[in-house]
Design a protein around this nucleic acid. Structure first.
Lengths: 188, 188
DNA sequence: TGTACATCAGTGAACGCGCGTTCACTGATGTAC
DNA sequence: TGTACATCAGTGAACGCGCGTTCACTGATGTAC
């Protein structure tokens, strides 16, 4: 049964949104086409009317703008500064909620094993998020770039390890130690 | 054809070693039983004489001591200090060579999606590596623990992002910015 | 504005494939005498 | 020490299953008159 063009566009957006959440929660391999389509309220057969392949979908998910998760806090005019962002990013809620969390942290491990468009888009998104971080950092532009990159690495590393670890106490220590380390840099 | 007990023990160790390398290179889902056994010079059927399941193998790989990769540099008496270790860990060679690299960085993303023994062993290994890092840090014991954890997060995050990214220049910037950031902390 | 029909988004079953796992079999090992 | 045989590590084909993908079909949409 055909649907209106507007509905088809909505469906496509719905597939992308569901896929982004499910990929972040379960990884690229962990979420299948049938599951993704069910989450979007459709059946598996309709998938290939919207995307050329699963790889195509993965690539488009990686290129999602605006980047989902805590990064929306850094969007212009949100009023949340660097410290507020770091606190939100390294919050235990972000450890638990993978589906709504940072795409970079959730899929960096998977992205490293991909080739072609997926990795290219992931790279572009990484650079974009570094720029977003750069914009809220103080100091000279030359130093800010390096500080944005090392901050991004610290954030992603701490969240990734906190998620991988089975022990909530150790996870919290990782988060708190990284928050303290990033704050110390800010005041130095 | 039966082999001697000594040979069987060697085979088992060979499966573990091959699996560790292949898992690090391709992830848990990326390496199949047949491939793992071929890499160990055996056929797929022999696998279940050594391990209860693929999950069992994954758990044992996560518990590998001594931890493989650059961590051997921190073993007692190697003479490599903190700075040397950081330089080796965040070296472009380590970005390229996943199979022989840090297990934590290679499998943290996958480990977060596992349950039971795999995650438990991964957690234990993470704590062990933090202790290893703690031992070469200067300063009071209380501060060293936090610094070890934030350093671990920064190392894993920088390596993970450098691997995920398609652009060698961006990867090198991530590594160098993180090295500089960790050095600055050391001298402060 | 109403009608007739071509278009095409979505359905759901089917395809080949590779996965983790099982199992009947093989033949060298290691033990009992 | 030498022989007979039970043990069991390894073989390789087979199993069911879920995956990504294809396709004949359906029926509402949107166009042509």
């Amino acid at each position: 049964m055909k649907v209106s063009r507007a509905q088809a566009a909505e469906n496509r957006a719905s597939i992308l949104a569901s896929a982004s959440r499910l990929f972040r929660a379960k990884g690229f391999d962990g979420a299948g086409i049938t599951e993704l389509m069910q989450a979007a309220g459709l059946t598996n057969g309709a998938f290939y009317g919207h995307f050329a392949s699963k790889d195509d979908l993965m690539a488009q998910v990686c290129a999602a703008v605006p980047p989902p998760g805590p990064w929306s806090l850094l969007a212009e005019g949100s009023g949340v500064g660097l410290d507020g962002f770091i606190t939100a990013y390294l919050h235990p809620d972000h450890v638990r909620n993978r589906a709504d969390g940072c795409l970079l942290a959730a899929l960096a491990g998977d992205a490293a094993r991909q080739i072609g468009p997926v990795r290219r888009r992931f790279t572009h998104t990484t650079a974009q998020l570094a720029d977003l971080l750069c914009a809220v950092l103080p100091g000279a532009a030359a130093r800010r770039r390096d500080r944005a990159l090392s901050t991004l690495a610290a954030l992603v590393g701490a969240l990734t390890l906190a998620r991988a670890v089975d022990d909530p106490a150790l996870a919290d220590q990782l988060l708190r130690a990284t928050i303290a380390s990033l704050r110390r840099r800010g005041s130095a």
